[in-house]
């Protein structure tokens, strides 16, 4: 009889604990859900910024910007007289 009573008591305690845990899980799950929503929103924002960056950083834009603001050109063959001119200009500048 005592064993039955003890077991009943133990189960009751366990059930109370389980109910408490269940409640806690529900609270945490709600928090996770909220965080997931925030996360999704942030991910969307991130995708937007990444896409914007991709657009700004596209080879086409970089090429047009460097052509506009920098005097960088791909290596190319030049004629002999221009090659000589390079030295004469440099000499003039030095003088």
């Amino acid at each position: 009889m005592k064993k039955v009573l003890f077991l009943t008591f133990l189960f009751s305690i366990l059930f109370i604990l389980l109910t408490f845990l269940n409640y806690k899980i529900e609270v945490i799950e709600t928090e996770i859900r909220d965080l997931e929503i925030i996360n999704k929103k942030l991910e969307k924002d991130l995708v937007f910024y990444k896409s914007e960056w991709e657009y700004i950083n596209s080879p086409e834009n970089i090429s047009s910007l460097s052509n506009k603001y920098l005097d960088h050109k791909p290596a190319e063959l030049i004629k002999f007289q221009y090659f000589i001119k390079l030295f004469s200009n440099e000499r003039l500048n030095n003088e």
Binding site: L5, T8, F9, F11, S12, F15, T19, N22, E26
Partner: peptide, 29 residues
Amino acid sequence: NKILLIISFLIGILGLVIMMRLVEISFPK
């Protein structure tokens, strides 16, 4: 024994209530 029986009965009822609550909580989840 009678007193213990009453207490165990009460605890049993409490356990049953908790179990029912557990079931109740688990369904909507």
